[in-house]
Amino acid sequence: MFLIEWGFWKMATESSASRNAAYAQRSLPDERSDSNVSDVGLDISFKSASEHPHTRGPIYAFNETYFDMRCGGSEEKRGLITLMTLGGVAPTIYAWAQLTHGFLVFNISALPEFNIPIILLNTLALLIGAGLTYLYLRYGFHLTRLELFTSRHLLIRFNRKTQQVHLHRPTYCGGIVTFPWRETGSTSTYQEDDPLSLGTRLGLVWHPSRTGLPHMEMAFIGKQGQGGSELRDEWEFIRRYMEEGPHAVPRPRLSTQLPSPIQAFSAQFEGLGRFFRKSSWLFKVALLFVWPAFVIIGTGHWLSLLLCWRPRWPKVIREAGLPGKPVPPVTTLSDYPPAIQARLLANADRWQLKPGKRPAKKPRKPRRSKAQAKPAAPNEDCV
């Protein structure tokens, strides 16, 4: 499911009219970035973050030049849109096809005589089918393609020879882009953020102040973490590969890019291993009553993989790092169509940085207990 990436790109390319209308309707102030200049510097750090470099994958390719890893911020939810599409659109198409076929057979059987009412009903059925198809293509297909009839996975490629990072996404999620490795920020560098890392993925960030683009790019890679230590281990794996080479990290196990049912059903349990082990026996028993839901969603996930195609990198990225081959150009604003450029520039204020450092948080006052807050009783000796 590419819902997060699609929503983020839609926000970056929102038209001025729709943006102003949305804020006017909700009576909210116009949106601005809440980041300071110093915050961007904190996100870029290539110091060692862990002593145990490790990746939980899935990794699709790994060699001396590059390695490919899965992207996607909501892979565990994949299958819901597929079930809604196949459960809603497919029965409608089937019923319309059966109705139209019946009218056609009845009309043909009456030849050479023509039955005007049947001809009108057949024409009406065709118009209804055409109308439903138009409504679906106009208002529903942009949601369906987040899981169906699109790339099977979002990919990220780390090329050690060219020191570049490539993102492979559909055009409606931002398209294929290239960034320098040294402009890559990570969301899992500091141990103080560990309490917020449970159930999240490693996030990589490319801020406009470093890329020169009018919008920010983000990528959520790998599987959900069971704690900040796992995400730091994954970032350290990437950092050591890019900085030192493949010999500095343990060789990962490669995953298939075929539509594997194992990947479809296991995605629902990403990040839950540690929580499941520490949970009570009552919670484990309760899971037995909801296992049909996991089976249904997993089946939808697998159908989604079956109805998508394997992503393929452009030739210039496939050959990058080979002797005598050109280095892929870094993505710039001119790489986008003129209409997209105008919309990106119109929303550039979302990522503007405030000067200076973020003000320090004021220490919280200790909370007083009810006994302390209760006023003292008057002294009887003073009466």
Rank of each mutant, 00 (worst) to 15 (best):
A130V: 10
L111Q: 08
E64Y: 02
L83E: 01
R70I: 07
D30S: 09
T82Q: 09
S35N: 09
F103L: 12
G79K: 08
A24V: 10
W96S: 07
L132D: 14
T123L: 13
Y66D: 14
D68K: 02
Q98F: 08
D68Q: 05
T100G: 08
L28V: 07
P53E: 03
N63A: 04
S45E: 08
T92P: 00
G131A: 11
R70T: 02
P112C: 02
G102N: 02
L80Y: 15
L120N: 01
I118V: 14
P91M: 07
A110G: 10
P53R: 03
Y23S: 13
L86C: 05
L124W: 05
N36L: 05
T133D: 05
E113H: 12
S50W: 03
R26M: 08
L28R: 14
K77P: 00
D43K: 12
P117C: 09
R32T: 14
D68T: 09
E75M: 11
R19S: 09
A24C: 11
S38K: 03
P58E: 10
S45F: 06
A22I: 14
I119W: 13
A21F: 13
G131S: 08
P112H: 09
A21P: 01
W96T: 07
S50C: 03
P29G: 04
E75T: 12
I44A: 05
F67E: 00
F106Q: 04
L126Q: 08
L80I: 15
A21D: 09
I108T: 03
I81D: 00
R78Q: 14
T85G: 06
E76A: 13
E64L: 02
